[in-house]
Design a protein around this nucleic acid. Structure first.
Lengths: 231, 231
DNA sequence: CGTAGAGGATTGTTCAACGATCCCTCAATA
DNA sequence: TATTGAGGGATCGTTGAACAATCCTCTACG
């Protein structure tokens, strides 16, 4: 009986998630992720609310959710806009990634670790690369690093990094050269995974730091050309 | 001229931030932080909205802001409550702190560092202790660690930890033995500061890790007695 | 003593309205 | 020509009200 009650309690989370605002924010989030709403786009309450058939209040709640995820920015009396990352934002994202991801790797206990998720993300990336789906490679890459952070076993840390990765996607979308951006890192993810499988945390952390530095450099280089102003 | 325009641009951030919902959430946030609304308190829409003279819609928007910050929990059809942390929450908070704070210290470049903020927080704690203001000691302690995180120079990391520290304050209010909780750590903060002044990052990180482990143990020990259920 | 049900109170959601603010346009002026 | 200022239209911010859904309490009954 206690077991069944526990299962029901788990399902409850699914039920409670039936909020209209959350569904709206899910829709908008994927629209933003796929580039349907490019960075800088203004999201009007009237037009979007009308198109989706939800009230302004509900829509504003959805906006607030996405604003908290830093995907939208809110300007008083002007509305919400899809975030346009500055170069400084990108640098801060990588600064945070380097800090947290390397700390996660170095802070792992003794092996073996649960590396199934990481291995799955690597495989996902290789498959996408074979099919020439470079955006898919980028997504798999983000999955890899999300799984990496999950190894720390901290809900709060995982949530922070989830939002950081979502932001990073905004930058990728501005750059829009997915192959050049993501292809080189498939092999490096494999190397990191291998180091972890060998239980060599220090080596994995070193590889990871190098990876992040290179990736930042590459993103920023293209990014500067794209966004006119500095940041 | 360009200089002056830059200064003005900095001030602009101050101008823009005036939304009723945000001001309300500021008020509630500090009320919660100071313990005026202890964990578990239900925040009624009618009474609070009436007392503050804002409409239900606006108040609900403020509630949502604080819910996103994890200071309130929302129960469907029952209202919002000041969050009651579980033991697991406390453990995850300290897991995150240990990960991030130690990584910040280890990741510092070469000395000297800008340690004025840290030194100020230490002094603030000592002064509060002299006056027997143990809650003030706790506040100063949080300031110390906030300044520590600020050394990383990452806006995102700082914001994450700000919210983590705000959560932690909820736990302190439940425990409500401020002297026993905070007094032992004044000296340890001094030691950490001294290690940093000497440029010995590794020593500082070790002290910090020990500090956090002890603090967690102490909080959890008292916390288990306070909250009836497990967590 | 335990349970079912009625009633009151509170929240969930939407809508309409009004004031405030911003943006754009256009004319006036130096 | 470039700058300033006024006006109009659009959008946002906030409120108040309305009604449905849900929860809590208390009563009545077996």
């Amino acid at each position: 009986m206690a077991e069944q009650l526990k299962d029901l309690a788990d399902d409850r989370a699914l039920l409670g998630r039936t909020s209209t605002a959350e569904r709206v924010s899910d829709i908008l989030r994927s629209r933003i992720a796929e580039g349907y709403f490019p960075p800088g786009t203004r999201l009007s309450e009237d037009s979007i609310g009308g198109a989706l058939g939800v009230s302004r209040n509900t829509l504003r709640e959805a906006f607030r959710l996405l604003t908290h995820e830093r995907l939208l920015v809110h300007e008083l009396n002007r509305g919400v806009f899809v975030r346009v990352l500055t170069v400084e934002d990108v640098e801060d994202i990588y600064r945070t990634r380097r800090l947290v991801e390397c700390a996660v790797v170095r802070g792992l206990g003794d092996p073996p670790y649960g590396l199934d998720g990481l291995a799955g993300a690597v495989e996902e990336g290789r498959r996408a690369a074979r099919e020439g789906d470079w955006k898919g490679v980028g997504t798999a890459n983000i999955h890899f690093h999300r799984e990496l952070v999950a190894l720390a076993g901290s809900e709060r840390t995982a949530e922070l990094m989830r939002s950081v990765f979502a932001e990073l996607r905004l930058a990728f979308h501005v750059v829009d050269e997915p192959q050049r951006l993501h292809e080189p890192y498939i092999a490096r993810n494999v190397a990191i995974l291998r180091a972890l499988q060998d239980g060599d945390r220090e080596q994995a952390a070193t590889l990871l730091a190098g990876y992040l530095d290179d990736s930042l450099e590459r993103v920023v280089e293209v990014y500067r050309r794209r966004v006119g102003e500095d940041g």
